[in-house]
Design a protein around this nucleic acid. Structure first.
Lengths: 200, 200
DNA sequence: GCGTCATTTCTACACCTGTAGACATCGCTC
DNA sequence: GAGCGATGTCTACAGGTGTAGAAATGACGC
């Protein structure tokens, strides 16, 4: 199964454990996966996991921090996009597509939400990572709340499309979905442009 | 601790177990709570739970079905409201307020999303319960997708406000939040009224 | 008052969990 | 080639899980 090419390489082993853990945590959540299973996915023994990361909890913390760092929705490209709402809508659909799992961070946190420690960790990571980046990009009042609503939309879509696999969203046409989401996000970012006064 | 008033009452005992399970599942998710804990909350023994419900899984199924039946967002009053989007926004904020837990169904499903069986159950319940009701109320194209997006918004807000307790949403002013959500929901329900062509 | 059945509890069993300590083995350096 | 530290495995342990069967205890009808 696991290629025995790497015989004794601490860095590679560590990375293999991290990768296996990330996949496993995203699939089953903190409580849903055991250390032995993670270790088997990396081709090592359970004890080695604790030897490298101290404990399952610390391993989870490291994985969670990685997922936040690798986030793609609020990437520099998107944050600098000319049409910010459109870029967000497109990324949002891509990132929550059932098959692909480029953004496993949110799903991992949602699936781990039964564990208080995982929740606490996730709150801090999301606040310091995603929310801060988005608030910096928003203008107008209630930036924090609006950023939070956007993050809620991300989390909810992820939950409904990837975790719960609600058919109407999971099997929807990506372009249709993006087309429906774009005006929503536009309202959230630019404000309800139309009722008070037609801009431009 | 638990009042020994009820000595031998099958119906009351069953109800007590259901209530305890509902609270426990909403708090910690399917995997996060044990049968013994649920039983203790109802003042009985663990075995009685299995005797009444067959297994932990069947107990969860019954609890989940109850929460869907008791849902309040898509209540008949809201579905018949003159200003549908406004009513939804108001209920949405109420229902996802951190302290109160009137809608524990979504939170329960989110917290239980590590368990495949719980997920499958939740998908069917949400589809047959909430989504069907909302689709029936929507006009225009892509009603299923739009209903799904709204449900995603509900789930996401619940996750961010009650489960993760993201400060910018959990501690936000309810009226501010409702004011921000209303135009979003309006776009989702009435369509982007302004750019293409004023309907009606 | 007593039999009888529903209601409840006790004991127990495999199984799984995260983690600790002792042991083995590989690979580099001198 | 020998030594030695790093790297990895084995065995084990408490504790917890859901669940099955047997035993006991209550309440009701005759």
């Amino acid at each position: 199964m696991t290629q025995p090419a790497r015989r004794r390489d601490a860095a590679a082993t560590r990375a293999a454990i991290l990768a296996s853990a990330r996949k496993a945590f995203a699939r089953a959540g903190y409580d849903g996966v055991g250390v032995r299973e993670i270790a088997a996915g990396a081709g090592v023994t359970a004890m080695l996991v604790n030897r490298y990361f101290g404990s399952k909890e610390q391993l989870f913390a490291e994985v969670a921090a990685d997922t936040v760092r690798d986030a793609v929705i609020l990437s520099p490209e998107n944050l600098a996009a000319a049409d910010f709402p459109a870029a967000l809508a497109r990324s949002l659909v891509e990132v929550t597509t059932p098959g692909a799992t480029p953004l496993d961070g949110f799903q991992m946190m949602l699936r781990s939400s039964g564990s208080p420690k995982a929740v606490e960790l996730g709150r801090d990571l999301i606040r310091q990572g995603h929310q801060a980046a988005l608030v910096g990009r928003l203008e107008g009042p209630h930036a924090a709340e609006r950023a939070g609503i956007f993050l809620a939309l991300v989390a909810g879509l992820q939950a409904m499309r990837q975790t719960l696999e609600l058919p109407s969203l999971a099997e929807a046409d990506p372009d249709t979905l993006a087309g429906l989401l774009e005006p929503l996000i536009r309202v959230l970012i630019d404000g309800p442009a139309c009722p008070p006064s037609p801009p431009r």
